[in-house]
Design a protein around this nucleic acid. Sequence first.
RNA 1: GGCCCCAUCGUCUAGAGGCCCAGGACAUCACCCUCUCAAGGUGGAGACACGGGUUCGAAUCCCGUUGGGGCUGCCA
Length: 463
Amino acid sequence: MTQEIRLRFAPSPTGYFHVGGARTALYNWLIAKQQGGSFILRIDDTDEQRNRQEWTDGIISALAWLEIDFDEGPYFQSRRKDRYFQKARELYEKGLAYYCNCTRDEIDERAKLRGGPPGYDGFCRDRALTPEPGFALRFKVPPGETVVNDVVRGTVTFANSTIEDFVLLKGNGAALYVLANFVDDVDLNISHVIRAEEHLPTTPKAVLLYEALGVDSPIFAHLPVLVNEKRVKLSKRRDRVAVEDFRDQGFLPEAMVNYLALLGWSPGDDVEFLDREEMIELFDLTKVSKSPAFFDVVKMKHFNKHYIASLTLDDFVNRCLRFLEANSWWSGDGIQTANFRAIAPYVQERIALLSEVVEMVDFLFVDPAQLSLEAYILSEADLEALSRFLVKVEAEEDFARDVLEGHFRSLGEELGLVLRKLQAPIRLSLTGRKVGPPLFVAMEILGKERSLDRIRNAIATGH
RNA sequence: GGCCCCAUCGUCUAGAGGCCCAGGACAUCACCCUCUCAAGGUGGAGACACGGGUUCGAAUCCCGUUGGGGCUGCCA
């Protein structure tokens, strides 16, 4: 009989959704799509102390933004407590688990006396304690060794003597991660468990549970962790890793997904840009790298620039709107969409983040004199050039980019100035910035009246 | 400390014994193009951690060393 393909992403809602989680979700999703299976979202909220509804909502909306859709769920572990208890009970009744009333202090104390490694020593194994409030249920780890077959890492063998009798049920009767995970994966008929490498050390415990209850293990794949510039695991506390933040900075979801796909996997053939279909077709767990990967925002920006440049104009304009509207300083009559649209193609090929659109086009909606963006004083020569440019364009009826550029070039010849020098004061007076979209496009869109006003104002004030 | 994982340019990686005095991408440097910026073009610098094996031949296989990481909770 052929096993159904079912994968799950099981984050615990204890903070902002971070990029490592996004990559894990993506890899699971890719395999599900590729194999015609199901992708399931499960919220691992067994630790009620640390969970909050908003984190769960954040995960769901971030996944939606990345277009990583799930076929089932979300399931919540917090709603399945009875089921975990039931399984735990079964283990207990079969003599595969036992109750324990040791406190942490007692365990540590004995470990210290023993002089060996810290950890539980099986003190209550043969005490035949009966269930009682406050007593934890521990799994009786059998002798021998436990093998984890991992698609990424191959065969990993653990001596059972190094695995302590781990806790299944807390003293308050609540299930712990290993148990809850195991029960859910079995109940949901999960075929592949793809998760971060930090879970590898607990995997033999899960395998022991599968073996104890005579259930087939799923296929395991442990992905290399994502690290920061200091090469330590990305942490929500230390590092800026929230998917929401990247969205707000103006990363495109398609760029982020593409970049994330390549952190730990490569299709070979020197290919880097891949759309969804190509990823689904080419993705291969056996080719996932084993070593940690540095999450490099700079490279992700390069991907973003590429994806921004390949957007259709309509799409680009639409995606920019929310960044433009976020700026209160030009609320009121707001953004003249037609003006923005006219300059958008020139902005589109220049920015790497959507949020950068603001500094590229603000001059269209606000007078540069109000902004005083760049500290710059016009020199005598600048003022002279501006005045002469003003004279030329004042007389011009046809305020078109090519015409304006013609005047600009002839002025350059008259003054014997290189054009890169000559453009600077004009750009400053018109836009208040040193860099921006092509000058004469900007000027055409601003129109004759506003352009001349700005140049005159610059001449009058000297900046 | 114990257990486990990992090791190719600064970074992400290609490389499954000869195609590799190691290829691509980002970043970086130089030059060209250019009204700024960006893009584009050309070129440069830049890596198989180390030591032993195995083999006619090793980045690729084995062992060790070193280095890094993960886990070590009645967290997930």
